[in-house]
Design a binder for these strands. Structure first.
Lengths: 200, 200, 200, 200
DNA sequence: CATGAATGAGGGTTCATTCAT
DNA sequence: GATGAATGAACCCTCATTCAT
């Protein structure tokens, strides 16, 4: 399955043939079909495994941190590290983009994943507000979206051009900027935006 | 070709068959092959057309703005608008992700596109610094990467979950945060990051 | 399609590969798939064509015969001839048996075909009764079933053992016996059977 | 093996996978392969078992009947009963049709079976003639073929449309008609047919 | 005896591409 | 310019069969 994840991450779902996975994994197609009903099920299993592993990993690392600011820093650090170590994060990103209009149920899976991720950040942000560490006047949902955006966008650019993009530095910059904005005493940041809160 | 762009945007390159494009466009496969040598060439033409159109559009809108801050705001606004009007931006994002390991020359095209985009932002940032509007101590290349990250990441989340994500608001928040950070007098933003400048 | 009918007649649906049909027809699989959506559709088209052709053929031959007895003789003659000339009749029989539990809609098609065939015989029998040529006390529906049985059963035995079974003779015997029974003045034939008429 | 017979009866040989049989029987494929060399051998064993059982059953029931007419009636009754109780008769019919051009040795098996069945009837018919119960001028071989035809054909129609076809009634009608024809004093039945006796 | 895992050939189907018309 | 027909490679998947345990 690790091989499948790797192939899917590189070539996408449609671009990965069962044959390719099998050959890369050193088994035959038949063996794959013995363990997975079909290509889609293999994809689902891979996706689920990866999502869970990532969430577990993040939770394990962040849970024990008392300070929300430190938690955000740690998340960014983890993402940067992961993106550079293997292509598990890229696997998720690639499949997420591809699934948009081609696989409704898979897309739902990713939607919920991102939703959980944002929800996790909202919790952190509210914690910071309650402790008086963060400003009260930021729109928490929008801020969560925006924080996640910075991570995803940086990853994309990194995958695209790893030699030119310093992912660690970019994410560090992102976090510091985000935290700076959250701690500016009387800022109006995000406030000028009209409309109610996002349904995020 | 508009049809091709639409199909590629939705289903990706591997997931789009010539037949699908032809049928959606109301012509026959033969007709497509009269105008484009092969599927890849059709993709290249589509991508080039879209990239140029987008860059032209941005330049046309931003060039006349004297204020770098206003320029950044306008760029975010354009991206938000485009992402919601049609799927041209999504086309680029989808193909960019898919091309990573499957089409070297196309990926190079996208790499250069993103590079031009970042370079454009670097120019804006330096302009702001020269005019004294922006702080001097920010690492311009990293800041450019980070600004683009916010845009890309927000778009992805929006494509993924348009009902939950308010793209306009998110990008507005992103810009304001970015500008706030650029104008804080004595910030240390981005500075703590070690290492030289990015090769962006 | 003629080739397809021949193959299906010989090896059944499951036993006939698209490759086999294509090779036997001297074209490629792709060519087949250009004209027929899939294997099943090819089967359906073949079955429909054969059923219609047979019914047309029988109707054309029998319609102009004024005498119901002659009509029955002609039907038996046609079936005997057809079964020996080509394997179109065998095609229908083979597929009919195979479709029973494997293809509901195809089976329905065959069911209706046989139903029409029996209905056609019922009409002939009633005609004979009205003209006073046939006895009044036979259960027409059951008689129709039974006449058709004789034909089908003889065909099966013929396909199974063409060297031992003289189909023409058997069917002639069947018809004459059937007609003799229909014209015996005071027979009780079929009558002893209890129960109402069949829903045939 | 009962399960195998059931599956083969429903889906035919080509349409039945070893997996299906194993699953339906609640064992694993490996277990099947322990008892039967391969799929074909399983089929042969099933066919042989069924043929023998049926013949044994008929013989046991008919042997003690002194009257050939009663014997014919009993045979029809048995066939009608069997066809409705289980699908053992259908198993034979299905496989017989399928084997025609796909399995020479199996087809030979069926050919001999039908041959024995007809031979059995020929014996009955001759017995009737010797005892003066049946007319002398019928062509015994052809009559035997024709009697069997009626049974097979009725079964097919019944399998095809059990709701519309009353098998018991049809076979009863068949027997009575057959017997009536055999006992008509001066009939010319079957006689007009030219040619020598069948090699049945 | 029985199982679970694995294999490899072959089947149905799709699809980029070509070509005569 | 455009079409319909055709090709052949490759893809997903099934299935009879084998084998270590």
């Amino acid at each position: 399955m690790a091989t499948a994840i790797d192939c899917f991450a590189r070539y996408g779902y449609a671009g990965t043939s069962i044959d390719r996975i099998a050959r890369a994994a050193g088994v035959t197609k038949g063996a794959l079909y013995y363990h997975f009903r079909d290509k889609e099920q293999l994809l689902f299993a891979s996706v689920k495994e990866r999502i869970e592993a990532f969430e577990q990993h993040v939770l394990g690392r962040v849970e024990q941190l008392a300070d929300p600011a430190q938690a955000l820093r740690e998340i960014a650090r983890i993402c940067a590290l992961n993106a550079r170590e293997d292509n598990h994060r890229r696997f998720i990103l690639t499949l997420m983009v591809e699934a948009l209009d081609t696989n409704a149920s898979l897309s739902a899976e990713f939607r919920e994943m991102l939703n959980r991720f944002r929800s996790f950040h909202r919790r952190l942000l509210r914690q910071g507000q309650e402790r008086g560490a963060f400003r009260q006047d930021v729109d928490v949902p929008t801020a969560a979206v925006q924080f996640v955006s910075g991570i995803l966008g940086a990853e994309i650019q990194y995958y695209q051009d790893p030699e030119r993009i310093d992912l660690t530095k970019t994410l560090a910059c992102h976090v510091e900027q985000f935290l700076a904005w959250l701690t500016i005493p009387g800022g109006t940041a995000g406030a000028p935006v009209s409309g109610g809160r996002q349904r995020v």
